[in-house]
Write a protein that binds this DNA or RNA. Structure first.
Length: 868
RNA sequence: GCCGAUGUGGCGGAAUGGCAGACGCAACGGACUUAAAAUCCGUUGACCCGAAAGGGUCGUGCGGGUUCGAGUCCCGCCAUCGGCACCA
């Protein structure tokens, strides 16, 4: 098939234009103050989620989003915007390191090669990136600032009163004032407990095969997201980022963003805010209090037992001698289980009675304390009050172990064994008769008044486990002295990883950096932190770096940041950021949440001008293989862009990516669909070009500088309107359909007005830039009006006057059903229209023996005659 | 179980509450050709009546509703996909 003659010479002109764009720096966007910068133009920042340069190369799924943003970037330039459209590489990460271990080659070598490959592929598709702004997260000039931001996290605390991060120095001052006699040791401990980057001994997800810990988000079904290796929980000392401090802002500040509702929902879900109360249950015979969190304080009278998580610190204290053996045995059984096994057993509740009793503060009832693994130490307080009458899990547990069930909510209708909805309180003394929401409020007031508890909010979101025991990542700008950590000074950055020959995991929990003896040992007995940052770090702020990728004095140039991240004037104060951000749904939670978190820190500390990084977000859908299955090597249904470019040209690839269907939908690839758009482009080519006997392409003799007739004008203006509006709304598929209608129309014309072709080439330019440039250039030899490059032309405007027809077809309905069509003069008066419609033979037939009850008239569109 | 999408011809998909199926693919017929490919022109939701011209009925996952009029709005189901999942 590849031997077949091409329908137009894209193999020649596509590389030519790519070279010219490169040579002329056509798509370079100067910063404010730089030569060539035009301050009169508005700005537009359109960004792709930058890729991890894998060994596999790009596949057609990546390109869908990239094509969409490229069309927008080119369109906005033609509309007179200064457009920032950059690309870079998220190049730290596990796959490169795993590959390096396998091949014995340094990860930087494979990374550089993969980047070359990716870049080559992108250039062959003709994307209009400003390559002078290319960034790479593994470049010391870049990760210096990743480390710098980490130091900002390390040296900040979250002030709940300001609801914002503040420098830790301010806290230190305040502490010195409030506790002047505190020891140095105590003060340090206090500060360390407040930092947004802190060290904690916590149960973590340890993956022995990868030799690293993973964030909760990187563990799927008890296995590592990368590689699918088993993950076990074990306590380790780790760096954590206090993202939970920002939980409320991450939730609230989502509101002003132009994101799909579904993505906002995913984030809200992940943050998982629950309103309720904490309640203190005294332990019978001890001084201790068991604090539980509940969203249903109104059911406190129905609490007939208390459950602690097996790891709960109070378990040892409440357990009686007699119950110690089974409790110890149960805890051991749970501890050795992985999370996967623990959820596997979810169907059948397990647990053990501790022998201890708690006192229900509302009625002084003595209720048993159990431990069970259905209560998680990591959520809420790690303890619950069990209300089996109104909670499914508690009900199952109580049924199994024969614990008393008391019903305290009257359901609105039929009663089930366990009712979890809202109703009216009963068997609850001072709550009796109150609807659930009021009962909740009243109970919380009571708890607060009596000192037994208080209003409380809990989140599912956990602090972000931020260290990895790997080589190929950003080293922490942290040193250790006498068992205490210290942040480095800004002048010590970047911390460059040592040139290790052997960066394999050590086989223990010791990170590979431990092998670099000289590197880790510093003067004065200090040593370097051995962990590295997770892959997400570099992508948390790369969109800022693009504004001034070569700035050496600051993570981003201040003026450039203010310019490119500025909000639209119609928007509220402080909003703004990237004007359009496009990427896959797989990043809906992790990357987007992490990046928002870092951005808010930088905002709080006055380093950036907007509260949110990405004003508008669009998630492109997945592209499936021809067989409707997810594309994968093992299924053999992967489509490689290189093959398509070779066979049909980059423009065909771009156009097909967009013609498949709506950007956000999941849709299957189809090779004959590619042929379809290829044929369309060939028709565009032949609209202007003619092949002679020798097989040479010349300007078509049908082209002429003539005025357009009425119908042609109407099509041209309808196309300008449709394409402009559809590009704005990212409905690229229908924009292309309209251009196809245009081409079908003019292909049929014996004489083709050059002006129409000229307009088409401009409209088509963002979609098929090579073909558009080539024809533009060729036409310049025969006709006036083709100066410069097509991509530098002003986007055309449409005129409604050409869209309106003098005569139009009116639909005649009888009782809402289509019965006839009539052609009438435009803007015919309603009375006249009704008269004509009633006169229609079809209407006459239908209306025989019937009375006309009503006539609905939609001017210039339809008449509906309603009969008895 | 909860949250969020989606459901329209043989296929991908179009349709500010107003002609359902734009555009493309596939299929079929024709022109060009010695022939084929490519190209160009045309037909193509299903069913029914008619020799034909033409005409009719049904039709947007299912069941209701609102409306002169519903693919579109409302209520209740079903199915598929994605996310979360013992989160108190």
């Amino acid at each position: 098939m590849s031997e077949r003659r091409k329908q137009f010479p894209f193999l020649q002109f596509e590389p030519k234009w790519q070279r010219l764009w490169q040579e002329r720096q056509t798509f370079h966007a100067p910063n404010p103050g730089e030569p060539g910068f035009d301050p009169t133009k508005p700005k537009f920042y359109v960004l792709d989620m930058f890729p991890y340069p894998s060994g596999e190369g790009l596949h057609v799924g990546h390109l869908e989003g990239y094509t969409a943003t490229d069309i927008i970037a080119r369109y906005k330039r033609m509309k007179g915007f200064n457009v920032l459209h950059p690309m870079g590489w998220d190049a730290f990460g596990l796959p490169a390191e795993q590959f390096a271990i396998k091949t014995g080659q340094h990860p930087s070598v494979a990374t550089a090669r993969n980047i070359e490959r990716f870049k080559g592929q992108l250039k062959k598709i003709g994307f209009s990136y400003d390559w002078l702004r290319e960034i790479n997260t593994t470049d010391p000039g870049y990760y210096k600032w990743t480390q710098w931001i980490f130091l900002k996290l390390y040296n900040s605390w979250f002030d709940p009163e300001a609801n914002a991060a503040r420098p830790i120095a301010e806290l230190l001052e305040k502490r010195n004032r409030d506790y002047p006699h505190e020891s140095e040791e105590e003060r340090l401990e206090f500060l360390n407990g407040q930092r947004l980057a802190y060290v904690a001994e916590a149960p973590v997800n340890w993956c022995p095969d990868l030799g690293t810990v993973l964030a909760n988000e990187e563990v799927v079904d008890g296995k590592s997201e990368i590689g699918g290796f088993p993950v076990v929980r074990r306590p380790m000392r780790q760096w954590m980022l206090r993202i939970t401090a920002y939980a409320d802002r991450l939730l609230e500040e989502l509101e002003g963003l132009d994101w799909q509702e579904s993505i906002k929902a995913l984030q809200r879900n992940w943050i998982g805010r629950s309103e309720g109360a904490t309640v203190n249950f005294p332990v019978d015979g001890l001084e201790d209090l068991i604090t539980v969190f509940t969203t249903r304080p109104d059911t406190l009278f129905g609490a007939t037992y208390v459950v602690l998580a097996p790891e709960h610190p109070l378990v040892d204290r409440v357990t009686t001698k007699a119950q110690t053996p089974p409790v110890v045995a149960y805890r051991e059984r749970i501890a050795t289980k992985s999370d996967l096994e623990r959820t596997d057993l979810a169907k059948e509740k397990t647990g053990v009675f501790t022998g201890g009793f708690a006192i229900n503060p509302v009625n002084q009832e003595r209720i048993p304390i159990w431990i069970a693994d259905y209560v998680l130490m990591s959520y809420g307080t790690g303890a619950i009050m069990a209300v089996p009458g109104h909670d499914e899990r508690d009900f199952q547990f109580a049924e199994k172990f024969g614990i008393y069930i008391r019903y305290v909510v009257e359901p609105p209708r039929s009663t089930e064994a366990c009712f979890t909805g809202e109703g009216v309180a009963k068997n609850s003394r001072f709550l009796d008769g109150l609807p659930t929401p009021e009962a909740k409020r009243k109970m919380i007031d009571w708890l607060e008044k009596e000192g037994h508890g208080k209003r409380s909010i809990t989140y599912k979101l956990r602090d972000w486990l931020f260290s990895r025991q790997r080589y190929w990542g950003e080293p922490f700008p942290i040193i250790w002295r006498d068992g205490k950590h210290q942040g480095l000074r800004e002048s010590d950055l970047p911390v460059v990883p040592p040139p290790l020959d052997d960066y394999r995991p050590t086989g223990t929990i010791e990170p590979p950096l431990a092998k670099a003896r000289e590197w880790i040992t510093l003067s004065g007995g200090a040593t370097r932190e051995l962990n590295t940052m997770p892959q997400w770090a570099g992508s948390c702020w790369y969109f800022l770096r693009f504004a001034s990728p070569h700035e050496t004095n600051r993570f981003v140039n201040e003026t450039a940041e203010r310019y490119w991240m500025a909000g639209n004037e119609s928007r509220k104060h402080r909003s703004g950021g990237v004007d359009l951000y496009v990427g896959g749904t797989e990043h809906a939670v992790l990357h987007l949440l992490y990046a928002r978190f870092w951005h808010k820190l930088l905002y709080d500390l006055n380093y950036v001008s907007t509260i949110e990084p990405f004003q508008r977000l669009v998630n492109q859908g997945m592209i499936l293989g021809q067989d409707n299955q997810k594309m994968s090597k093992s299924r053999g249904n992967v489509v490689t862009p290189d093959d398509i470019v070779e066979e049909y040209g980059a423009d065909s690839l771009r156009l097909y990516e967009m013609f498949l269907g709506p950007l956000e939908a999941t849709k299957p690839w189809s090779m004959s669909g590619v042929e379809g758009v290829y044929r369309f482009l060939a028709r565009v080519w032949r609209l202007a070009m003619d092949e002679d006997q020798e097989g040479e392409w010349n300007l078509s003799p049908a082209l002429a500088s003539v005025d357009l007739n009425r119908k042609q004008l109407s099509i041209v203006h309808a196309t300008i309107k449709k394409v402009s509006e559809d590009v704005e709304s990212l409905s690229f598929n229908t924009a292309i359909a309209q251009m196809m209608i245009f081409v079908n129309e003019f292909t049929a014309a014996e004489i083709r007005p050059v002006e129409a072709v000229r307009t088409l080439l401009i409209l088509l330019n963002p979609f098929a830039p090579h073909l558009s440039e080539e024809l533009w250039w060729r036409l310049s030899f025969g006709f006036a009006g083709f100066e410069g490059m097509a991509c530098e032309q002003r986007w055309p405007e449409w005129d409604d006057q050409f869209l309106a027809k003098d005569d139009l077809e009116i639909v005649i309905q009888v009782n809402g059903k289509l019965r006839d069509k009539i052609t009438v003069r435009r803007d015919l008066e309603n009375e006249e229209l009704q008269r004509v419609a009633l006169a229609s033979v079809k209407v006459q037939e239908a209306a025989r023996d019937k009375r006309v009850r009503k006539v609905i008239i939609v001017p210039n569109k339809l008449v509906n005659i309603v009969l008895e």
